[in-house]
Design a protein around this nucleic acid. Sequence first.
DNA 1: TTCTTTCTACCAAGTAGTAGGTAGATTTTG
DNA 2: CAAAATCTACCTACTACTTGGTAGAAAGAA
Lengths: 198, 198
Amino acid sequence: MRDTRTELLLQAEILVRRGGYAGFSYADLAEAVQIRKASIHHHFRTKADLAHALVAAYDARYDAALAGILAGEPDAISRIAAYGRLYLGGVEAGLGCLCAVLAIEGEALPESLRADIARFFEKHIAWLEAVLADGIASGCVRPSVKPAASARMVVATLEGALLMERLLAGPMGFRGTLDALCAGLAPAGLSSRGDDTI
Amino acid sequence: MRDTRTELLLQAEILVRRGGYAGFSYADLAEAVQIRKASIHHHFRTKADLAHALVAAYDARYDAALAGILAGEPDAISRIAAYGRLYLGGVEAGLGCLCAVLAIEGEALPESLRADIARFFEKHIAWLEAVLADGIASGCVRPSVKPAASARMVVATLEGALLMERLLAGPMGFRGTLDALCAGLAPAGLSSRGDDTI
DNA sequence: TTCTTTCTACCAAGTAGTAGGTAGATTTTG
DNA sequence: CAAAATCTACCTACTACTTGGTAGAAAGAA
């Protein structure tokens, strides 16, 4: 037994993250899933509906991951490092962040989708802000860090690094940026990972 | 007298930065420039040719701006702040970075274009690396900063912030991230801009 | 004249989406 | 229970329109 709807979401996500929303067609997706193009419309009436479902599923997966990090990582810096490692899978697979890809096509997208994407980012920012504030209180984050501004910066840095290192240095380049980011948040003289490669 | 080729480049850049490469068509561009669609092919034989010309012009503009910053700004931190302000125009106009937009559509793009974009990013990274190394030598950048890794991080952060704040908080959000970025590079206890708004 | 630029009028291929039908499972009803 | 109605999942075949690109004529400029 094969869950076609799930398979459609899986393949569509790959296609979008690889080439953008405008860059893939129902024909491409039909070929990837091996059903006729018209059958996709049975599961997702319009392309915009599909995109909504894509973002919802992606968002839910991140929700679970964020909760897992809070449970599994004790301090703020290791939580942020773990958060950064969520993006690493994308770099390794050569796939951009779904929401970044969609955000870039902005004006060409249905308005309601843009709202979904904005909510995605805002949720991450709020989560990081809490993690940072907590880290400052417990002393493992430099006290001069402003949680609200730095939370935005963390998401921006990771999204940018994923975007860029997918083309350039790949996982190695991404890891370097993640380390530099964490080092900039930790108290002076306390480097979390000892990579002395330049 | 009207330079059609220049006008085409101008409008095409706006269209791409607004909605992506796949997201705009020769028909859209024809309407923006008020000539027939077929006439565009006289100036740019194919869409890929147009994209190449777009990146070349964009790259040249940045070259000039980078040289101007070196000439006009004395220290590393103010140079990086000025570099960051180059992106601000995009946030204000609601336009993404041309190369970021193209980078995201990766697989759907002509291979040669991807090489152009990679070179664009690498040039910026090299420039920032030199600025940072110089800043460390002269003491205005924290000595624990690793120029190579931090240069990548600076580009990533600004590209990410442009991508994200175009949807979210706009110029204000971007400026916050730029300040946090600079604060993280400057020696401890030395905040360049005194915005105490959390 | 000759070269450049723009035009009208196409084209083949691709786009999302629709119409209408079929096979089979599930539910409802007598 | 069995017959009838409904639903799910998919199909073929199509529509209306857009895509990048071409051919060749007409208009401008040197």
